[in-house]
Amino acid sequence: MRISPNFVDKIVKIGLNFQAFFTVGILIAIVAVIFFKGSPYLNLEFIFSSPEDMGRHGGIFSTIIGTIFLVLLSIFIATPLGVGTAIFLTEYTKESWFTKIIRFGVESLAGIPSILYGLFGFIFFVVKLGMGWSLMAGVLTITIMILPTIIRTSEEAVKTVPRNLRIVSYSLSATKWETVTKVVLPSAGPGILTGIMLSVGRAVGETAAVIFTMGSSLRLPTSLMDSGRTMAVHFYILAREGISMEKAYATALVLVLSILFINIIAYYIMNKVTSKYS
C-alpha cells in the first residue's frame, strides 16, 4: 500500500513540532538548572567577598574584577582596530587582491579555536615577550581572539548604511573621514554595538585562551603585570577539581546572568537608537 503524501505531511508536521519544542526545551532546561541550582547560594556576600581557601569559601569578587578588567581592556583595544578595519574595507578601498587577502586573514582568525589562541598567547606574550602570566598577556590574547567578530559585524553594519547618505554628505562638502564619522558610523552604530556585545559575551565566557595567558591567581590584580582569574576560569577550576559544587553553581549563575544582561543591554540600545529617527 502506498502511503498518501498528505498523511506523510501531517506526520512530519507533528514530528517537527515535537522535535522543535524538545530542542528548545533542552536549551531552556540548561538555563533553568543553572538558575535553580545556583540561586540558593547567590547573594550579595558571594559577589562582594573574595574567594578563600581556593574558592571553597567566600565569594567571587576578585574574579569578577578580573573579568571586568580583562573584558574592558580587550574591548578597548579591539574596537578601534576592528571598526577601523571594517571602515577601511568598506569605505577606503575597492574590492581587490588586497582586500581579499585581508578578508582571508580575518576569516582564518575567526576559525582558530580558543585553545590555539591560548597556546599562541602563552608562547608569544607570556614566554617570548616575558610578560609572564599577566592581565596584559590575557588582554592582548583576547583582543586578537575577538577582533574578527568585531570586524565582521561592523562590516555588515557599515554595509547596510545607504549609499545615498554618503553621497549627500559628500555633496555638502564633507571629506571622506567626516562622512565616516558623522554619517556612516552613527547609522551603523547599533549594528557595531551588537558585535561588540557579542565579543564581550565571548570574552566573559572564555576559559582556554585565558587560563594560559592571564593565569589563575586568586588575588585581585592591581597592575597589568599581575596574574588574575576570571569568573569562567574560576568556575572551571571549581567544577573540574571538585572544590565546591555549591560555589560552582553560584558562579555559573553569575556567568549566565552576566551574559543575559549583556544581551539585554545590546537589544535595549539597539532598539532605542533605531527607533529614534525612524
Binding site: T85, L109, L116, L147
Partner: peptide, 27 residues
C-alpha cells in the same frame, strides 16, 4: 589629514594579517 587617516586605517586592517602571521609563526 585624510591621508593620515587612510594610513592609520590601512595599518589597522593589516594588523589582522600580522596577528594571523604571528600565530602561525609561533605555533
Amino acid at each position: 589629514k585624510e591621508h593620515f587617516v587612510k594610513y592609520i586605517l590601512t595599518a589597522f586592517a593589516l594588523s589582522s594579517l600580522l596577528f594571523l602571521f604571528l600565530i602561525f609563526i609561533f605555533i
